[in-house]
Design a protein around this nucleic acid. Structure first.
Length: 573
RNA sequence: GCCCCCGUAGCUCAGCGGAUAGAGCACCGGCCUCCGGAGCCGGGUGCGCUGGUUCGAGUCCAGCCGGGGGCGCCA
Protein backbone atom coordinates (compact mmCIF):
# COMPACT_ATOMS: atom_id res chain seq x y z
CA UNK A 1 0.00 0.00 0.00
CA UNK A 2 1.69 3.20 -1.16
CA UNK A 3 1.90 6.07 1.24
CA UNK A 4 -0.86 8.63 0.86
CA UNK A 5 1.35 11.64 0.23
CA UNK A 6 3.24 9.63 -2.34
CA UNK A 7 0.11 8.79 -4.31
CA UNK A 8 -0.90 12.41 -4.42
CA UNK A 9 2.58 13.67 -5.10
CA UNK A 10 3.06 11.27 -8.01
CA UNK A 11 -0.17 12.38 -9.63
CA UNK A 12 0.77 16.03 -9.31
CA UNK A 13 4.30 15.37 -10.48
CA UNK A 14 2.92 14.06 -13.75
CA UNK A 15 1.11 17.36 -14.24
CA UNK A 16 4.13 19.44 -13.28
CA UNK A 17 6.27 17.40 -15.65
CA UNK A 18 4.28 18.68 -18.61
CA UNK A 19 5.35 22.21 -17.66
CA UNK A 20 8.89 21.45 -16.62
CA UNK A 21 10.27 17.93 -16.32
CA UNK A 22 11.29 17.11 -12.78
CA UNK A 23 9.55 20.03 -11.14
CA UNK A 24 8.70 19.41 -7.47
CA UNK A 25 4.99 19.73 -6.59
CA UNK A 26 5.98 20.72 -3.01
CA UNK A 27 3.10 18.86 -1.40
CA UNK A 28 2.35 19.94 2.16
CA UNK A 29 -0.39 19.67 4.71
CA UNK A 30 -2.91 22.47 4.76
CA UNK A 31 -5.27 24.07 7.21
CA UNK A 32 -7.85 24.87 4.54
CA UNK A 33 -7.84 21.56 2.66
CA UNK A 34 -6.40 18.10 3.18
CA UNK A 35 -3.23 19.02 1.31
CA UNK A 36 -1.80 21.84 -0.70
CA UNK A 37 0.75 21.87 -3.50
CA UNK A 38 3.00 24.93 -3.56
CA UNK A 39 5.21 24.02 -6.48
CA UNK A 40 3.47 26.34 -8.92
CA UNK A 41 4.96 29.46 -7.34
CA UNK A 42 8.59 28.51 -7.75
CA UNK A 43 7.91 27.06 -11.17
CA UNK A 44 6.16 30.21 -12.36
CA UNK A 45 9.22 32.21 -11.43
CA UNK A 46 11.46 29.96 -13.50
CA UNK A 47 9.07 29.96 -16.45
CA UNK A 48 8.46 33.70 -16.25
CA UNK A 49 4.73 33.15 -16.02
CA UNK A 50 2.03 34.17 -13.57
CA UNK A 51 1.85 31.73 -10.63
CA UNK A 52 -1.92 31.63 -10.69
CA UNK A 53 -1.92 30.58 -14.35
CA UNK A 54 0.63 27.86 -13.71
CA UNK A 55 -1.42 26.57 -10.79
CA UNK A 56 -4.58 26.57 -12.90
CA UNK A 57 -2.80 24.66 -15.61
CA UNK A 58 -1.62 22.05 -13.09
CA UNK A 59 -5.17 21.68 -11.84
CA UNK A 60 -6.44 21.27 -15.40
CA UNK A 61 -3.76 18.75 -16.32
CA UNK A 62 -3.55 16.60 -13.20
CA UNK A 63 -5.60 13.42 -13.18
CA UNK A 64 -7.07 13.56 -9.70
CA UNK A 65 -10.75 12.82 -10.33
CA UNK A 66 -10.71 9.42 -8.66
CA UNK A 67 -9.03 10.56 -5.45
CA UNK A 68 -10.04 14.19 -4.92
CA UNK A 69 -13.46 15.68 -4.40
CA UNK A 70 -12.22 19.25 -4.81
CA UNK A 71 -9.14 20.83 -6.33
CA UNK A 72 -8.85 24.59 -6.51
CA UNK A 73 -6.39 27.43 -6.66
CA UNK A 74 -6.22 30.17 -4.07
CA UNK A 75 -3.89 32.93 -2.96
CA UNK A 76 -0.95 33.63 -5.25
CA UNK A 77 -0.95 30.09 -6.65
CA UNK A 78 -1.59 27.46 -4.03
CA UNK A 79 -3.25 24.31 -5.26
CA UNK A 80 -5.65 23.04 -2.61
CA UNK A 81 -6.62 19.39 -2.57
CA UNK A 82 -9.50 17.79 -0.74
CA UNK A 83 -9.62 14.02 -0.87
CA UNK A 84 -12.83 12.24 -1.82
CA UNK A 85 -14.44 10.52 1.16
CA UNK A 86 -14.70 7.33 -0.81
CA UNK A 87 -10.97 7.39 -1.47
CA UNK A 88 -10.21 8.13 2.18
CA UNK A 89 -12.43 5.26 3.25
CA UNK A 90 -10.73 2.92 0.83
CA UNK A 91 -7.30 3.97 2.06
CA UNK A 92 -8.28 3.39 5.68
CA UNK A 93 -9.75 0.03 4.80
CA UNK A 94 -6.52 -0.97 3.05
CA UNK A 95 -4.42 0.30 5.94
CA UNK A 96 -6.46 -1.69 8.44
CA UNK A 97 -5.98 -4.82 6.38
CA UNK A 98 -2.22 -4.27 6.28
CA UNK A 99 0.01 -5.82 8.94
CA UNK A 100 2.48 -3.00 8.41
CA UNK A 101 -0.19 -0.32 8.79
CA UNK A 102 0.85 1.23 5.52
CA UNK A 103 4.50 1.70 6.45
CA UNK A 104 6.43 1.00 3.28
CA UNK A 105 9.70 -0.87 3.12
CA UNK A 106 12.68 1.16 1.99
CA UNK A 107 13.13 1.14 -1.77
CA UNK A 108 16.80 0.48 -1.21
CA UNK A 109 17.45 -1.43 2.03
CA UNK A 110 20.77 -0.41 3.55
CA UNK A 111 23.15 -1.88 6.05
CA UNK A 112 23.01 0.70 8.82
CA UNK A 113 25.41 0.64 11.76
CA UNK A 114 24.08 2.40 14.83
CA UNK A 115 26.64 3.27 17.49
CA UNK A 116 24.93 4.04 20.79
CA UNK A 117 24.82 3.71 24.57
CA UNK A 118 28.58 3.23 25.14
CA UNK A 119 28.89 2.89 28.92
CA UNK A 120 32.23 2.36 30.65
CA UNK A 121 33.42 -0.80 32.32
CA UNK A 122 33.79 -0.46 36.08
CA UNK A 123 31.45 2.53 36.12
CA UNK A 124 27.80 2.68 36.94
CA UNK A 125 25.51 3.75 34.09
CA UNK A 126 24.15 7.23 34.79
CA UNK A 127 21.88 9.85 33.21
CA UNK A 128 24.67 10.67 30.80
CA UNK A 129 23.97 7.36 29.08
CA UNK A 130 20.20 7.76 29.03
CA UNK A 131 19.75 9.73 25.85
CA UNK A 132 22.20 7.79 23.72
CA UNK A 133 20.62 4.51 24.81
CA UNK A 134 17.00 5.61 24.43
CA UNK A 135 17.41 7.54 21.18
CA UNK A 136 19.62 4.85 19.68
CA UNK A 137 17.10 2.17 20.59
CA UNK A 138 14.25 4.08 18.95
CA UNK A 139 16.29 4.67 15.80
CA UNK A 140 17.20 0.99 15.59
CA UNK A 141 13.55 -0.02 15.89
CA UNK A 142 12.42 2.50 13.28
CA UNK A 143 15.16 1.64 10.82
CA UNK A 144 14.37 -2.06 11.11
CA UNK A 145 10.68 -1.33 10.69
CA UNK A 146 11.29 0.19 7.27
CA UNK A 147 13.38 -2.75 6.19
CA UNK A 148 16.98 -1.75 6.74
CA UNK A 149 19.54 -4.22 8.01
CA UNK A 150 20.63 -2.71 11.30
CA UNK A 151 23.83 -3.54 13.14
CA UNK A 152 23.75 -2.40 16.76
CA UNK A 153 27.15 -1.44 18.10
CA UNK A 154 27.72 -0.74 21.76
CA UNK A 155 31.12 0.92 21.88
CA UNK A 156 31.84 0.09 25.50
CA UNK A 157 34.83 1.73 27.21
CA UNK A 158 36.66 -1.43 28.22
CA UNK A 159 40.28 -0.63 27.46
CA UNK A 160 43.01 1.90 28.09
CA UNK A 161 45.24 3.22 30.82
CA UNK A 162 42.58 3.40 33.58
CA UNK A 163 42.48 -0.37 33.56
CA UNK A 164 45.92 -0.63 35.14
CA UNK A 165 44.53 1.16 38.13
CA UNK A 166 41.26 -0.76 38.15
CA UNK A 167 42.93 -4.15 37.90
CA UNK A 168 45.37 -3.35 40.68
CA UNK A 169 42.50 -2.31 42.86
CA UNK A 170 40.78 -5.59 42.07
CA UNK A 171 43.97 -7.41 43.05
CA UNK A 172 44.01 -5.58 46.36
CA UNK A 173 40.41 -6.52 47.06
CA UNK A 174 41.07 -10.13 46.12
CA UNK A 175 43.98 -10.33 48.52
CA UNK A 176 41.58 -9.58 51.32
CA UNK A 177 39.91 -12.88 50.48
CA UNK A 178 36.68 -11.68 48.93
CA UNK A 179 37.26 -13.42 45.63
CA UNK A 180 36.86 -11.79 42.22
CA UNK A 181 33.16 -12.53 41.76
CA UNK A 182 32.08 -10.83 44.92
CA UNK A 183 34.67 -8.12 44.78
CA UNK A 184 32.69 -5.41 43.08
CA UNK A 185 29.53 -4.63 44.91
CA UNK A 186 28.99 -1.11 43.76
CA UNK A 187 30.77 -0.07 40.60
CA UNK A 188 30.99 3.57 41.52
CA UNK A 189 32.44 2.81 44.93
CA UNK A 190 34.94 0.49 43.30
CA UNK A 191 36.00 3.12 40.81
CA UNK A 192 36.27 5.85 43.41
CA UNK A 193 38.41 3.71 45.70
CA UNK A 194 40.71 2.83 42.83
CA UNK A 195 41.14 6.52 42.08
CA UNK A 196 41.86 7.31 45.70
CA UNK A 197 44.61 4.70 45.84
CA UNK A 198 46.00 5.92 42.55
CA UNK A 199 46.22 9.49 43.70
CA UNK A 200 47.44 8.81 47.23
CA UNK A 201 49.79 5.88 46.83
CA UNK A 202 53.01 6.18 44.83
CA UNK A 203 53.51 2.41 44.91
CA UNK A 204 49.97 1.77 43.66
CA UNK A 205 50.57 4.19 40.85
CA UNK A 206 53.72 2.34 39.82
CA UNK A 207 51.95 -1.02 39.97
CA UNK A 208 49.16 0.41 37.83
CA UNK A 209 51.59 1.53 35.16
CA UNK A 210 53.22 -1.89 35.06
CA UNK A 211 49.76 -3.47 34.92
CA UNK A 212 48.83 -1.46 31.84
CA UNK A 213 51.91 -2.85 30.12
CA UNK A 214 50.95 -6.39 31.16
CA UNK A 215 47.43 -5.86 29.86
CA UNK A 216 48.67 -4.50 26.55
CA UNK A 217 51.10 -7.41 26.14
CA UNK A 218 48.38 -9.98 26.72
CA UNK A 219 49.54 -11.40 30.04
CA UNK A 220 47.03 -14.22 30.77
CA UNK A 221 46.64 -13.53 34.48
CA UNK A 222 46.06 -9.85 33.81
CA UNK A 223 43.58 -10.61 31.06
CA UNK A 224 41.66 -12.87 33.42
CA UNK A 225 41.37 -10.06 35.93
CA UNK A 226 40.34 -7.67 33.18
CA UNK A 227 37.74 -10.18 31.98
CA UNK A 228 36.34 -10.37 35.48
CA UNK A 229 35.91 -6.60 35.54
CA UNK A 230 34.25 -6.64 32.15
CA UNK A 231 31.92 -9.51 33.02
CA UNK A 232 30.75 -7.90 36.22
CA UNK A 233 30.16 -4.64 34.42
CA UNK A 234 28.28 -6.36 31.64
CA UNK A 235 25.95 -7.90 34.18
CA UNK A 236 25.24 -4.40 35.41
CA UNK A 237 24.66 -3.07 31.89
CA UNK A 238 22.30 -5.94 31.17
CA UNK A 239 20.34 -5.14 34.29
CA UNK A 240 19.94 -1.51 33.19
CA UNK A 241 19.05 -2.46 29.63
CA UNK A 242 16.43 -4.88 30.93
CA UNK A 243 14.90 -2.20 33.13
CA UNK A 244 14.94 0.23 30.24
CA UNK A 245 13.50 -2.31 27.85
CA UNK A 246 15.97 -1.69 25.05
CA UNK A 247 17.19 -4.16 22.45
CA UNK A 248 20.87 -4.06 23.39
CA UNK A 249 22.48 -7.20 24.74
CA UNK A 250 25.94 -8.73 25.14
CA UNK A 251 26.10 -9.63 21.47
CA UNK A 252 26.02 -5.95 20.53
CA UNK A 253 29.08 -5.07 22.55
CA UNK A 254 32.02 -4.13 20.40
CA UNK A 255 34.22 -2.46 22.96
CA UNK A 256 37.40 -0.51 22.57
CA UNK A 257 39.39 -3.66 23.32
CA UNK A 258 38.05 -5.16 20.11
CA UNK A 259 39.83 -2.53 18.06
CA UNK A 260 43.10 -2.62 20.00
CA UNK A 261 44.72 -5.20 17.70
CA UNK A 262 43.96 -2.99 14.69
CA UNK A 263 45.57 0.18 15.97
CA UNK A 264 49.13 -0.57 14.81
CA UNK A 265 47.77 -0.96 11.31
CA UNK A 266 45.81 2.27 11.52
CA UNK A 267 48.97 4.17 12.36
CA UNK A 268 51.07 2.31 9.84
CA UNK A 269 48.59 2.99 7.07
CA UNK A 270 48.24 6.66 7.94
CA UNK A 271 52.04 6.83 7.92
CA UNK A 272 52.25 5.14 4.54
CA UNK A 273 49.67 7.55 3.16
CA UNK A 274 51.82 10.43 4.33
CA UNK A 275 49.09 11.83 6.54
CA UNK A 276 50.87 11.57 9.87
CA UNK A 277 52.89 14.42 11.29
CA UNK A 278 54.92 14.57 14.45
CA UNK A 279 53.84 17.31 16.84
CA UNK A 280 55.46 17.59 20.26
CA UNK A 281 56.16 13.89 20.09
CA UNK A 282 52.58 12.93 19.28
CA UNK A 283 51.62 11.53 15.90
CA UNK A 284 48.80 13.53 14.46
CA UNK A 285 46.70 14.09 11.38
CA UNK A 286 45.72 17.66 10.61
CA UNK A 287 42.49 17.55 8.63
CA UNK A 288 41.92 20.80 6.75
CA UNK A 289 39.34 23.20 8.09
CA UNK A 290 39.91 22.64 11.81
CA UNK A 291 41.77 25.20 13.86
CA UNK A 292 42.61 25.63 17.52
CA UNK A 293 42.34 28.70 19.70
CA UNK A 294 45.36 30.30 18.09
CA UNK A 295 44.08 29.77 14.59
CA UNK A 296 46.65 27.04 14.03
CA UNK A 297 45.71 23.69 12.48
CA UNK A 298 43.99 21.40 14.97
CA UNK A 299 45.44 17.91 15.32
CA UNK A 300 43.65 14.63 15.61
CA UNK A 301 46.04 12.84 17.93
CA UNK A 302 46.28 9.25 16.81
CA UNK A 303 49.24 8.20 18.89
CA UNK A 304 50.31 9.93 22.07
CA UNK A 305 53.87 10.97 22.76
CA UNK A 306 54.22 8.10 25.22
CA UNK A 307 53.42 5.66 22.43
CA UNK A 308 49.92 4.90 23.63
CA UNK A 309 46.95 5.19 21.34
CA UNK A 310 44.33 7.85 21.83
CA UNK A 311 40.62 7.33 21.36
CA UNK A 312 40.91 8.84 17.91
CA UNK A 313 42.86 5.78 16.80
CA UNK A 314 40.10 3.54 18.12
CA UNK A 315 37.42 5.59 16.41
CA UNK A 316 39.28 5.40 13.13
CA UNK A 317 39.71 1.65 13.47
CA UNK A 318 35.98 1.39 14.17
CA UNK A 319 35.12 3.25 10.98
CA UNK A 320 37.33 0.92 8.93
CA UNK A 321 35.86 -2.12 10.61
CA UNK A 322 32.32 -0.96 10.01
CA UNK A 323 32.90 -0.22 6.36
CA UNK A 324 35.11 -3.22 5.55
CA UNK A 325 33.84 -6.03 7.77
CA UNK A 326 30.24 -5.01 8.38
CA UNK A 327 29.62 -3.51 4.96
CA UNK A 328 28.05 -0.40 6.44
CA UNK A 329 26.32 1.88 3.96
CA UNK A 330 25.21 4.31 6.62
CA UNK A 331 26.71 4.83 10.07
CA UNK A 332 24.88 6.68 12.83
CA UNK A 333 26.76 7.93 15.88
CA UNK A 334 24.27 8.55 18.65
CA UNK A 335 26.67 10.64 20.67
CA UNK A 336 26.28 13.85 22.66
CA UNK A 337 26.58 17.18 20.89
CA UNK A 338 29.86 18.17 22.66
CA UNK A 339 31.71 15.56 20.66
CA UNK A 340 30.71 17.07 17.34
CA UNK A 341 34.15 18.40 16.51
CA UNK A 342 35.95 15.21 17.44
CA UNK A 343 33.64 13.13 15.28
CA UNK A 344 33.83 15.53 12.35
CA UNK A 345 37.62 15.29 12.51
CA UNK A 346 37.52 11.52 12.62
CA UNK A 347 35.20 11.44 9.62
CA UNK A 348 37.45 13.86 7.76
CA UNK A 349 40.58 11.82 8.45
CA UNK A 350 38.86 8.56 7.51
CA UNK A 351 37.87 10.15 4.22
CA UNK A 352 41.38 11.45 3.63
CA UNK A 353 42.72 7.96 4.21
CA UNK A 354 40.21 6.48 1.81
CA UNK A 355 38.59 4.37 4.52
CA UNK A 356 35.28 6.08 4.24
CA UNK A 357 34.07 6.16 0.65
CA UNK A 358 31.62 8.86 -0.29
CA UNK A 359 29.00 6.15 -0.84
CA UNK A 360 28.90 5.59 2.91
CA UNK A 361 26.92 8.18 4.82
CA UNK A 362 28.21 8.90 8.29
CA UNK A 363 26.07 10.98 10.54
CA UNK A 364 26.53 12.38 14.00
CA UNK A 365 23.11 11.97 15.59
CA UNK A 366 23.85 14.60 18.20
CA UNK A 367 21.74 15.24 21.26
CA UNK A 368 21.65 17.84 23.99
CA UNK A 369 22.07 17.43 27.72
CA UNK A 370 19.60 16.43 30.38
CA UNK A 371 19.25 19.38 32.73
CA UNK A 372 18.06 19.59 36.32
CA UNK A 373 15.46 22.06 37.62
CA UNK A 374 18.28 24.62 37.96
CA UNK A 375 18.93 24.30 34.21
CA UNK A 376 22.38 22.92 34.91
CA UNK A 377 23.50 19.38 34.16
CA UNK A 378 21.14 16.99 35.92
CA UNK A 379 22.76 15.77 39.15
CA UNK A 380 21.68 14.28 42.42
CA UNK A 381 21.43 16.42 45.52
CA UNK A 382 24.92 15.34 46.55
CA UNK A 383 26.29 16.55 43.25
CA UNK A 384 26.97 13.10 41.81
CA UNK A 385 25.57 12.03 38.52
CA UNK A 386 22.29 10.18 38.94
CA UNK A 387 22.47 6.43 38.54
CA UNK A 388 20.24 5.07 35.84
CA UNK A 389 18.98 2.20 38.00
CA UNK A 390 17.90 4.66 40.67
CA UNK A 391 16.24 6.90 38.11
CA UNK A 392 14.27 4.03 36.61
CA UNK A 393 13.27 2.58 39.96
CA UNK A 394 12.13 6.01 41.01
CA UNK A 395 10.04 6.39 37.87
CA UNK A 396 8.30 3.07 38.43
CA UNK A 397 7.66 3.92 42.08
CA UNK A 398 6.15 7.27 41.14
CA UNK A 399 4.00 5.67 38.45
CA UNK A 400 2.75 3.09 40.95
CA UNK A 401 1.91 5.86 43.40
CA UNK A 402 -0.04 7.72 40.72
CA UNK A 403 -1.95 4.55 39.87
CA UNK A 404 -2.81 4.04 43.52
CA UNK A 405 -4.70 7.34 43.42
CA UNK A 406 -7.33 5.61 41.33
CA UNK A 407 -9.20 2.46 42.00
CA UNK A 408 -8.37 -0.13 39.44
CA UNK A 409 -9.30 -3.75 39.14
CA UNK A 410 -5.83 -4.93 38.23
CA UNK A 411 -4.21 -7.74 40.17
CA UNK A 412 -0.83 -7.14 41.77
CA UNK A 413 1.21 -8.65 38.96
CA UNK A 414 -0.50 -6.63 36.24
CA UNK A 415 -0.39 -3.54 38.40
CA UNK A 416 3.36 -3.87 38.76
CA UNK A 417 3.84 -4.47 35.07
CA UNK A 418 1.72 -1.45 34.15
CA UNK A 419 3.61 0.74 36.62
CA UNK A 420 6.83 -0.27 34.91
CA UNK A 421 5.41 0.48 31.48
CA UNK A 422 4.17 3.87 32.66
CA UNK A 423 7.28 4.93 34.55
CA UNK A 424 9.82 3.84 31.97
CA UNK A 425 7.59 4.98 29.14
CA UNK A 426 7.32 8.42 30.73
CA UNK A 427 11.09 8.82 30.89
CA UNK A 428 11.59 7.60 27.35
CA UNK A 429 8.81 9.69 25.86
CA UNK A 430 10.06 12.83 27.60
CA UNK A 431 13.49 12.15 26.14
CA UNK A 432 12.30 11.32 22.64
CA UNK A 433 9.60 13.93 22.19
CA UNK A 434 11.77 17.02 22.05
CA UNK A 435 13.95 17.88 19.11
CA UNK A 436 17.04 15.90 20.04
CA UNK A 437 19.74 18.57 19.60
CA UNK A 438 18.17 20.65 22.34
CA UNK A 439 18.89 20.33 26.02
CA UNK A 440 15.82 19.46 28.06
CA UNK A 441 14.84 19.87 31.67
CA UNK A 442 14.15 16.66 33.53
CA UNK A 443 10.83 17.15 35.31
CA UNK A 444 9.10 14.23 37.03
CA UNK A 445 5.74 15.93 37.37
CA UNK A 446 5.53 16.90 33.75
CA UNK A 447 6.68 13.62 32.24
CA UNK A 448 4.48 11.47 34.48
CA UNK A 449 1.37 13.58 34.04
CA UNK A 450 -1.57 11.81 32.46
CA UNK A 451 -2.56 14.95 30.66
CA UNK A 452 -0.59 16.73 28.01
CA UNK A 453 2.04 15.51 25.60
CA UNK A 454 3.35 12.61 27.69
CA UNK A 455 3.94 8.90 27.44
CA UNK A 456 1.23 8.09 30.00
CA UNK A 457 -1.35 10.11 28.04
CA UNK A 458 -0.67 8.09 24.90
CA UNK A 459 -0.73 4.85 26.85
CA UNK A 460 -4.00 5.90 28.41
CA UNK A 461 -5.50 6.73 25.04
CA UNK A 462 -4.54 3.27 23.84
CA UNK A 463 -5.90 1.45 26.90
CA UNK A 464 -9.12 3.42 26.67
CA UNK A 465 -9.72 2.22 23.13
CA UNK A 466 -8.98 -1.36 24.05
CA UNK A 467 -11.54 -1.08 26.81
CA UNK A 468 -14.24 -0.31 24.25
CA UNK A 469 -13.79 -3.75 22.78
CA UNK A 470 -13.55 -5.34 26.22
CA UNK A 471 -16.71 -3.71 27.53
CA UNK A 472 -18.58 -4.41 24.35
CA UNK A 473 -17.21 -7.97 24.29
CA UNK A 474 -16.34 -7.32 20.68
CA UNK A 475 -13.69 -8.75 18.43
CA UNK A 476 -11.82 -6.35 16.14
CA UNK A 477 -13.78 -5.69 12.95
CA UNK A 478 -13.21 -8.16 10.15
CA UNK A 479 -10.55 -7.10 7.66
CA UNK A 480 -12.20 -5.25 4.84
CA UNK A 481 -14.81 -3.53 6.98
CA UNK A 482 -15.36 -0.04 5.61
CA UNK A 483 -14.91 2.86 8.05
CA UNK A 484 -17.77 5.23 8.75
CA UNK A 485 -16.81 8.73 7.63
CA UNK A 486 -19.92 10.92 7.64
CA UNK A 487 -19.06 12.97 10.72
CA UNK A 488 -16.23 15.56 10.49
CA UNK A 489 -14.60 14.01 13.56
CA UNK A 490 -14.60 10.62 11.87
CA UNK A 491 -13.06 12.03 8.76
CA UNK A 492 -10.46 13.95 10.74
CA UNK A 493 -9.52 10.75 12.54
CA UNK A 494 -9.27 8.88 9.26
CA UNK A 495 -6.93 11.52 7.85
CA UNK A 496 -4.82 11.41 10.99
CA UNK A 497 -4.55 7.63 10.73
CA UNK A 498 -3.46 7.83 7.12
CA UNK A 499 -0.57 10.05 8.19
CA UNK A 500 1.16 7.26 10.09
CA UNK A 501 3.39 5.98 7.29
CA UNK A 502 4.52 9.50 6.47
CA UNK A 503 5.31 10.22 10.10
CA UNK A 504 7.46 7.11 10.33
CA UNK A 505 9.27 8.06 7.13
CA UNK A 506 9.89 11.58 8.42
CA UNK A 507 11.23 10.27 11.71
CA UNK A 508 13.55 7.82 9.96
CA UNK A 509 14.77 10.31 7.39
CA UNK A 510 15.74 12.88 9.99
CA UNK A 511 16.79 10.39 12.67
CA UNK A 512 14.14 12.34 14.53
CA UNK A 513 11.97 10.28 16.89
CA UNK A 514 10.24 13.45 18.09
CA UNK A 515 8.39 13.66 14.80
CA UNK A 516 6.80 10.30 15.45
CA UNK A 517 6.02 11.41 19.02
CA UNK A 518 4.30 14.53 17.74
CA UNK A 519 2.29 12.51 15.27
CA UNK A 520 1.13 10.03 17.91
CA UNK A 521 0.11 12.81 20.25
CA UNK A 522 -1.92 14.49 17.50
CA UNK A 523 -3.53 11.18 16.67
CA UNK A 524 -4.48 10.56 20.30
CA UNK A 525 -5.93 14.05 20.58
CA UNK A 526 -7.86 13.61 17.34
CA UNK A 527 -9.18 10.31 18.60
CA UNK A 528 -10.47 11.71 21.88
CA UNK A 529 -12.31 14.43 20.00
CA UNK A 530 -13.87 11.75 17.82
CA UNK A 531 -14.70 9.66 20.86
CA UNK A 532 -16.45 12.54 22.58
CA UNK A 533 -18.66 13.34 19.62
CA UNK A 534 -19.23 9.97 18.03
CA UNK A 535 -20.77 7.25 20.21
CA UNK A 536 -19.44 3.85 19.27
CA UNK A 537 -21.11 1.12 21.30
CA UNK A 538 -24.41 2.97 21.38
CA UNK A 539 -24.46 3.59 17.63
CA UNK A 540 -26.67 1.66 15.23
CA UNK A 541 -25.24 -1.58 13.95
CA UNK A 542 -23.98 -0.33 10.60
CA UNK A 543 -22.47 2.83 12.04
CA UNK A 544 -20.95 0.97 14.98
CA UNK A 545 -18.92 -1.36 12.78
CA UNK A 546 -17.68 1.57 10.75
CA UNK A 547 -16.58 3.36 13.92
CA UNK A 548 -15.03 0.28 15.43
CA UNK A 549 -12.75 0.12 12.41
CA UNK A 550 -11.46 3.57 13.31
CA UNK A 551 -11.11 2.65 16.98
CA UNK A 552 -9.24 -0.54 16.35
CA UNK A 553 -6.93 1.01 13.81
CA UNK A 554 -6.17 3.93 16.12
CA UNK A 555 -5.25 1.54 18.91
CA UNK A 556 -3.02 -0.46 16.59
CA UNK A 557 -1.27 2.66 15.30
CA UNK A 558 -0.71 3.93 18.85
CA UNK A 559 0.65 0.59 20.02
CA UNK A 560 2.84 0.14 16.97
CA UNK A 561 4.06 3.71 17.04
CA UNK A 562 4.94 3.48 20.71
CA UNK A 563 6.67 0.17 20.03
CA UNK A 564 8.84 1.90 17.44
CA UNK A 565 9.87 4.28 20.21
CA UNK A 566 10.58 1.39 22.56
CA UNK A 567 7.55 2.17 24.72
CA UNK A 568 5.02 -0.40 25.88
CA UNK A 569 1.28 0.03 25.42
CA UNK A 570 -0.63 -2.00 28.02
CA UNK A 571 -4.21 -2.99 27.17
CA UNK A 572 -5.39 -1.99 30.62
CA UNK A 573 -4.09 0.41 33.21
C1' G B 1 40.06 34.59 20.56
C1' C B 2 38.08 30.70 17.09
C1' C B 3 34.36 26.86 16.17
C1' C B 4 29.57 24.26 17.20
C1' C B 5 24.54 24.16 19.32
C1' C B 6 20.43 26.89 21.30
C1' G B 7 17.21 31.65 21.69
C1' U B 8 9.33 31.06 19.36
C1' A B 9 3.11 32.69 24.39
C1' G B 10 4.02 33.48 31.81
C1' C B 11 6.41 28.13 31.78
C1' U B 12 7.87 23.50 28.72
C1' C B 13 8.17 22.86 23.64
C1' A B 14 6.42 21.90 17.87
C1' G B 15 6.98 24.43 13.39
C1' C B 16 11.34 19.63 7.42
C1' G B 17 11.35 28.21 2.27
C1' G B 18 4.82 28.98 1.68
C1' A B 19 -1.29 31.73 3.19
C1' U B 20 -3.75 34.32 9.56
C1' A B 21 3.14 30.92 13.66
C1' G B 22 0.77 26.15 16.66
C1' A B 23 0.41 22.42 21.06
C1' G B 24 0.78 21.18 26.23
C1' C B 25 1.09 23.17 31.26
C1' A B 26 -0.74 27.11 34.18
C1' C B 27 -5.04 30.56 34.43
C1' C B 28 -10.50 31.72 33.34
C1' G B 29 -15.28 29.97 31.61
C1' G B 30 -18.48 25.94 29.87
C1' C B 31 -19.72 20.29 29.34
C1' C B 32 -21.23 15.81 35.28
C1' U B 33 -28.79 11.29 32.56
C1' C B 34 -20.78 10.64 29.77
C1' C B 35 -18.91 3.63 25.64
C1' G B 36 -12.67 4.90 31.24
C1' G B 37 -13.78 12.95 33.58
C1' A B 38 -6.38 10.23 33.63
C1' G B 39 -11.57 13.44 29.26
C1' C B 40 -13.92 17.20 25.82
C1' C B 41 -15.23 22.42 24.06
C1' G B 42 -14.06 27.76 24.21
C1' G B 43 -10.66 31.83 25.70
C1' G B 44 -3.66 34.05 23.03
C1' U B 45 -1.56 42.01 20.79
C1' G B 46 4.85 35.60 21.27
C1' C B 47 9.54 34.24 16.54
C1' G B 48 16.54 37.99 20.93
C1' C B 49 18.32 42.50 17.66
C1' U B 50 19.83 44.61 12.79
C1' G B 51 20.60 44.00 7.80
C1' G B 52 20.53 40.76 3.37
C1' U B 53 18.79 36.70 -0.26
C1' U B 54 13.73 35.36 -2.13
C1' C B 55 7.49 36.25 -5.47
C1' G B 56 7.46 34.58 -0.18
C1' A B 57 11.89 34.07 5.91
C1' G B 58 10.47 31.68 12.66
C1' U B 59 12.99 28.67 8.77
C1' C B 60 18.47 30.43 4.40
C1' C B 61 23.00 34.12 4.72
C1' A B 62 26.00 38.05 7.46
C1' G B 63 26.83 40.81 11.85
C1' C B 64 25.60 41.78 16.87
C1' C B 65 23.26 40.44 21.93
C1' G B 66 22.21 36.47 25.52
C1' G B 67 22.79 31.08 27.26
C1' G B 68 25.38 26.38 26.87
C1' G B 69 29.39 23.42 24.99
C1' G B 70 34.12 22.41 22.52
C1' C B 71 39.09 24.02 21.32
C1' G B 72 46.64 18.68 21.60
C1' C B 73 48.23 13.96 24.22
C1' C B 74 40.99 11.82 29.29
C1' A B 75 37.08 8.99 26.49
Amino acid sequence: MPELRRVLSDRLRAAFDTLEPGADPVLRGSDRADFQANGALALAKRLGRRPGDVAEQVVATARLGDICSAVWVSGPGFVNLTLADRFVAEQVRAMAADERLGVALAVEPLTVVVDYSAPNVAKEMHVGHLRSTVIGDALVRMLEAVGHRVVRENHVGDWGTPFGMLIEHLVDLDSTGAGPQASIGDLDVFYRQARVSFEADQGFRERSRRRVVLLQSGDPATLALWRSLVDQSMAHFDEVYAKLGVLLDDGDVVGESFYDPMLDQVVADLQALGLLRDSDGARCVFPPGFTNRDGAPLPLIVQKSDGGYGYAATDLAAIRDRVDRLGAQRILYVVGAPQAQHLQMCFAVAQMAGWLPSSVKVEHVAFGSVLGPDRKMFRSRSGDSVKLVDLLDDAVRRAAAAMAQRDGDLDDAERASVATALGVGAIKYADLSTERTRDYVFDWDRMLAFEGDTGPYLQYAHARIRSIFRRGELAPPAPGTVPHLDHPAERALAMALLGFAGAVDDAVDGAAPHRLCGYLYDLAATFTTFYETCPVLRADDGVREGRLVLCDLTARVLAHGLALLGIQAPDRM
